[in-house]
Simulated scan of single mutants.
Amino acid sequence: MTSTPARFTPFDASEFLDSEESIAEYLAAALEDPDPDLFVAALGDVAKARGMTQIAREAGLGRESLYKALTPGSKVRYETVRKVMDVLGVRLTVSPQG
């Protein structure tokens, strides 16, 4: 008996980021991880879900530059993160640990 190997497609979080609440929760969860690349990747997922070209245009950035900036390990500037978050309609908040 020969079995066919299972085929899996890569998980794409951007397919599930369809509301303001899911986007905010996704980014908040990513921000809790100490690895900054996780937050950068999550921000990229959200930008992809909303349309990278549109986000880049509204943030005043080039599309290719935005893709590069939101790639893990990119050392993205805070200014870029802030512009993208403003366009996405989300903000960072600070609270005491505990």
Rank of each mutant, 00 (worst) to 15 (best):
D33A: 09
S14T: 10
A28R: 11
L92A: 12
Y67R: 10
L61N: 01
V46G: 06
A69D: 12
L92P: 00
T53P: 01
F39I: 03
F8E: 01
K48P: 01
Q54E: 15
M52V: 15
A28F: 05
L38Y: 01
K48E: 15
V76F: 10
T80Y: 10
S74L: 13
A13M: 02
E25N: 08
D86H: 06
G62M: 07
V46S: 08
R7C: 02
E15S: 11
A28S: 14
D33F: 01
P72D: 04
A24M: 10
L43K: 02
V76Y: 07
F39S: 02
V84Y: 01
A13G: 00
A59C: 07
T9W: 06
F16N: 04
L70S: 06
P34Y: 00
Y78H: 12
S3A: 11
A6G: 00
D18C: 02
D45T: 09
D33W: 01
T9P: 00
E32V: 00
M52H: 02
R77Y: 09
A24Q: 12
D45R: 05
L92D: 00
T93D: 12
E64I: 06
A69K: 02
Q54T: 15
E20A: 09
V46H: 05
P10A: 15
K48A: 15
D12L: 12
E20W: 01
T71L: 05
F39H: 02
V40L: 02
S74F: 15
L31D: 07
S22M: 10
F11P: 00
V84H: 01
R77V: 12
I23M: 08
A42N: 08
L66T: 11
A47I: 14
D12I: 09
P34I: 00
Y78C: 06
I23A: 01
L31G: 01
T80L: 12
D37C: 05
E15K: 11
K83I: 07
S95N: 03
L61K: 06
Q97H: 08
A69G: 04
E25A: 10
T93C: 03
P72Q: 03
F8T: 03
E32K: 05
L27V: 08
L38C: 02
S95Q: 12
A30D: 09
Y26G: 08
E20N: 04
V81C: 13
F8N: 00
E64Q: 12
T53C: 08
D45I: 07
A56K: 02
T4G: 02
D86P: 00
A69F: 03
E20Q: 10
S19R: 03
P10E: 13
P96M: 14
E15A: 14
E32C: 04
F16C: 05
S14A: 15
V81D: 04
T4A: 10
L70P: 10
E15F: 09
A30Q: 06
A29M: 08
G89P: 03
P10W: 09
L27Y: 02
A6T: 11
L43W: 10
K68P: 06
G89T: 06
A13H: 00
L70G: 06
K75H: 14
I23G: 00
R82Q: 13
V76K: 04
K48G: 12
L27D: 04
M52A: 07
V87M: 03
V76T: 14
D86M: 06
V81W: 05
L17P: 02
F11H: 04
S3F: 10
R50D: 11
R7H: 13
E15I: 03
V46L: 11
D45A: 13
E32Q: 09
D86C: 00
F16L: 14
L70T: 12
T53R: 11
K83T: 05
